[in-house]
């Protein structure tokens, strides 16, 4: 076994593989070789060979009309320990909140200055148009704003230094407006997003901080121009307190409530 592999070679191969995998999205789950080449920004011959390798390793699966992410990546991804731990601490409160408010609840974390939804659920007929694992711009979501307000300063700097994405007419694209909102969120512990990611859906969110460290954010979402009634906000903050009080307690020690 060659142990002295050139570092740049590892990097090159792994980052190319990452480019190929990152070409897939919720709405593009099967990609033809041409689409994969275009979206991964790699030469077609490289894409073809690398995709073939990834198929033989089970990372991709070949389809009549192209390639798709393989089940072995689904299986590995469900081992993500941070999600498993957050689930143990957060899921009961998300269920309570969804029942109490009859709205949808979610938990998300920051990832490369955007948010990744780890879990979302609804106790009513209202459904969020997202899936677990979905990535959304932080600045268009209450979850993202809650995370940015309490998250690492460098993430916030990067976000404010770049053009803010517009997903709806309500998306905040002025960095000054966003910065002011984040100050308010730092004071109140509550972030609001009114139809900023999806038209017709509004949201309130709060950061989960344990021992001074940000671990995630939880949110309540519902139909309409705004849902930040005082009852909803009170329920949200109550859930935050309940989660933080038990956070990290081994599950066996938390009685069924």
């Amino acid at each position: 076994m060659d142990i002295d592999v050139d570092l740049t070679s590892d990097r090159t191969v792994l980052s190319r593989a990452a480019k190929i995998l990152e070409a897939f999205s919720g709405s593009r789950r099967v990609l033809s070789l041409n689409a994969l080449t275009e979206r991964s920004n790699l030469p077609k011959s490289t894409t073809h060979r690398l995709a073939g390798r990834l198929v033989s390793l089970g990372w991709l699966e070949r389809q009549p009309d192209g390639y798709r992410i393989g089940m072995s990546l689904f299986e590995a991804g469900r081992l993500a320990e941070r999600r498993i731990r957050l689930r143990e601490s957060v899921f009961p409160s998300l269920q309570d909140l969804a029942m109490k408010t009859q709205l949808a609840t979610s938990v998300a974390v920051l990832s490369n200055d955007e948010i990744v939804v780890l879990d979302h659920l609804s106790a009513s007929r209202f459904r969020l148009p997202i899936y677990n694992g979905a990535r959304l711009p932080a600045t268009c979501t209450a979850l993202g704003k809650a995370l940015l307000a309490r998250g690492p300063a460098d993430a916030l700097d990067r976000v404010l230094d770049n053009p803010l994405p517009r997903r709806t007419d309500g998306s905040i694209v002025d960095p000054v407006v966003l910065a002011n909102q984040l100050v308010t969120i730092q004071e109140t512990g509550v972030a609001v997003a009114n139809e900023e990611a999806f038209a017709g859906i509004s949201c309130v969110a709060a950061p989960l901080c344990v021992d001074g460290g940000l671990v995630a954010a939880i949110s309540i979402s519902g139909p309409g121009q705004r849902i930040d009634s005082s009852a909803t906000v009170t329920a949200l903050l109550g859930a935050v307190r309940a989660i933080c009080a038990d956070y990290g307690t081994p599950r066996a020690m938390v009685a069924d409530r």
Binding site: E22, G26, R68, L73, G77, L118, G133, R135
Partner: peptide, 9 residues
């Protein structure tokens, strides 16, 4: 990896 794995079609 959780994010990518969820896209398994």
């Amino acid at each position: 990896l959780f994010e990518i794995g969820n896209l398994a079609d």
